[in-house]
Simulated assay, not measured.
Amino acid sequence: MESLGDLLSQMKSPQLRRRSEELNARMMSEPLVRDLCIRHPELTEEHLLRGMAKLYQYVNDSRHCAACPGLDRCPNDFPGHFTKLTVENNGAGPQLVDRQVTCPKQLRYEMDLSIKKRIHSFYVDDRALQQGYDEVEILSKDGARVPAVSQVFRYINQTKESGLSTRGLYLEGHFGTGKTFLMCYLLHELAKEGYSGVIVYMPEFVEDLKSMLQESQKLKETTEVMKQADLLIFDDIGAENLNPWVRDHVMGSILNYRMNRKPTFYTSNYSLKALEKHLSFTSKDGEEIHKGQRLMDRIAPFVDVVTVSGNNKRGKV
């Protein structure tokens, strides 16, 4: 279909009248225009002729949308939108009114973008946060983990209904049972409700903190993000090589701020008891039971334990 601009550019041509009549006849025979006339019998030919440019845009956008090549290649004049035509009566008779309406693909893109902006990831593969989620697939993937999945689903639904709790979840289980995946799903679902979230892969985070010793501003900004997020997830806690400074001054500061304020979540191969033992030992000072207990006092009372059973799915297609 020729652009309306191309047609109008021929106005100085002697063939203008014929071309104009052809365009009008073509528009009048369009199924969308005929349907519009059936729904609005008050429209006369004069009304349609006065609104010919709007009819043309409406039909053109509709054709593009029917053969949509994808949002990134949208051929409409206003990408991600289409022309919606309505008939309104302003007292001087019926009038064609055109509006630009956001298409479902654009709405989905904008929602996905807003979700991404609410979630901050430290060292966690972004693919885990960006993939699509299907509740039926999550439940059916491994029957052994159904109780854990159901508990995570309940937490999500309760938060949607009643708002943010100060209690989080502690997902414990063997390697590859989907603990991180479930926490990413939780983040994704609650980000759709407007909550902000941070997920931190502990082994790499602790290593990176060592380089921040000389970057006090970066360290302050990083810890502040973790303190203020609605949802904070420490992924694979217990797998890091802990040192006293990270445990007592970084982790301790973050958890001390969040307890009784905002929920913190954890995934680990350790039980809470085994995690306390891990937190009590550092490569520098050896075993310091009371310091491990002190940090656990900011973890254990503020979580519900979820045991994630099942088979190791890493490396499986």
Rank of each mutant, 00 (worst) to 15 (best):
I138A: 11
M296W: 04
R294C: 07
I138S: 11
A66C: 04
L8N: 11
R18Q: 13
V198L: 02
L232D: 02
P263Y: 06
D125I: 02
L190C: 10
V200E: 05
G252V: 06
S283H: 15
G163I: 10
L4K: 08
Q228N: 08
Y195V: 01
L36I: 03
D304T: 11
G315I: 04
G163A: 07
L96M: 05
N76V: 11
M11I: 14
P244E: 13
Q214N: 14
V308D: 04
I38W: 06
Q15E: 12
T166G: 01
D208S: 12
V206M: 02
D236N: 14
R39D: 15
G70V: 13
R145Q: 09
V200Q: 06
V305F: 02
P94W: 01
T267V: 08
H188V: 02
Q158D: 12
E193V: 11
S253V: 04
Q106E: 15
T166I: 07
L4C: 06
L171P: 10
P69Y: 12
P14H: 07
P79A: 07
N157S: 13
K210E: 08
H249Y: 14
L272Q: 06
I138W: 04
M111F: 05
D6Y: 11
M202A: 05
S271I: 07
G252W: 02
L32N: 01
S309T: 13
V303R: 09
D230H: 10
Y170G: 08
I199A: 03
R17V: 14
S3C: 05
L190P: 02
N24Q: 09
I289S: 13
L242Q: 01
R167K: 13
H174A: 14
D236W: 06
L295T: 04
L231V: 08
D235G: 06
F181L: 12
A92F: 09
D61L: 11
A229T: 10
K313V: 10
V146K: 15
S216I: 05
F122S: 03
S20M: 12
V308L: 15
M212R: 15
I199Q: 02
K160L: 13
K277C: 06
S140D: 15
E276S: 12
E221C: 00
K105A: 15
L48G: 01
T264C: 11
G252A: 05
S165W: 00
R108W: 04
G70Y: 05
G51T: 00
V33C: 00
V198Y: 03
D6H: 14
Q151F: 03
M28S: 02
N157I: 06
M27D: 00
G173R: 14
G238C: 08
A239T: 07
N241A: 09
V250A: 10
E172G: 03
N260Y: 06
P203H: 04
E46A: 12
V305G: 09
A191V: 10
N76I: 03
L16E: 10
V146T: 12
Y56L: 03
P75W: 06
V317A: 15
F205K: 00
C65M: 13
L242G: 03
S165K: 13
F82V: 12
